[in-house]
Computed example of a mutant assay.
Amino acid sequence: MTATTRDLFERYHACWEARDPDRIAELHTIDSVFHLHSGQPPALGRAAVRQAAADSFELVPDLGFKIVSLRFGEDFWVARFKMTGKSASGAALDVDLADFVLVENGAVKEKHSYVDGVAMQAAIAPAEDSP
């Protein structure tokens, strides 16, 4: 079963790398939870997951992920990433991310993402006006 979980991770990660919210949502269960633990409520269900992913790509149009570490279990994976890109405000993004993902019937049931909130806010904050 771990091979199946790894295959799901590979397909799911490819969707994030392609910045494709539709394909990301398709790999979630109908009642999935996607919670970016940075102060906002979780996205519940595929439509909300799709919107949350689309919002991420709007904030950082060239969002990329470098895998730092990755572990698999029967029905989960845990990954550490370095998120990179340039935010819509023009700031460089170099932010640590940790994901804990639960799998059910070959799809993502829950995705809990933990980011370096200080670094993320600095990268996505609007650029200050110059005098």
Rank of each mutant, 00 (worst) to 15 (best):
I24Q: 00
S69N: 11
D99I: 13
Q121G: 14
R6G: 06
P21S: 03
K86C: 09
L8S: 02
S69V: 06
G45N: 09
P126N: 15
A107Q: 15
E110L: 04
A18V: 08
V33E: 09
S56T: 08
V101A: 02
R23G: 03
A98W: 07
A52C: 07
D129F: 13
S113Q: 14
D31R: 09
R19M: 02
M1P: 11
D129R: 15
I124A: 03
R46G: 00
Q51F: 04
A43E: 02
R23F: 06
A123W: 00
F57Y: 08
T84S: 13
Q51N: 06
A119W: 01
V118F: 15
A53E: 01
A98C: 13
E104W: 08
D55E: 14
D62H: 04
I67V: 15
Q121N: 15
A123D: 12
R80D: 15
V108K: 00
L27N: 00
D62C: 04
A127F: 09
D20W: 01
V101G: 02
P41H: 07
H28L: 06
E74H: 14
P21I: 00
I67E: 12
L44R: 09
A92F: 10
A127Q: 15
L93Y: 06
A43G: 05
A53M: 03
L70K: 01
A79Q: 05
A127G: 15
G90Q: 12
A91T: 13
L59E: 07
F72E: 05
C15T: 11
D75S: 13
R46K: 04
F76C: 15
D94P: 06
V78M: 10
W16H: 03
G39V: 02
I67C: 10
A14K: 04
E128L: 15
C15Q: 06
V49R: 00
E104V: 09
E104I: 06
K86A: 14
P41K: 12
T84V: 07
S113G: 13
A122T: 08
R71Y: 10
D22E: 10
D99V: 14
P21C: 04
L8H: 01
G117F: 11
V33R: 07
H13T: 05
D20V: 01
A79W: 09
I30G: 10
P126D: 09
P42I: 00
R23S: 06
L70F: 07
S69C: 10
A3C: 07
D75Q: 12
G39A: 05
L102Y: 13
P61I: 04
V101S: 03
E110Y: 12
T84A: 13
D94C: 11
E74F: 12
A122D: 14
A25I: 00
D94S: 08
D96S: 04
V78K: 10
F72P: 05
A48D: 08
A91H: 15
S69D: 11
A43C: 12
F34P: 04
A18S: 09
F65Y: 10
A54M: 07
K86T: 15
I124Y: 04
F76W: 13
R46H: 01
V60A: 04
I124N: 03
K86L: 11
A91V: 09
A52S: 05
R80S: 09
T2M: 12
S32Y: 03
V103R: 01
V60N: 00
A52D: 05
L8R: 12
Q40P: 08
R71M: 07
A54Q: 02
V103H: 02
L63D: 03
A123V: 02
K82A: 11
D22V: 01
R23Q: 08
D22M: 03
S89H: 11
H112R: 14
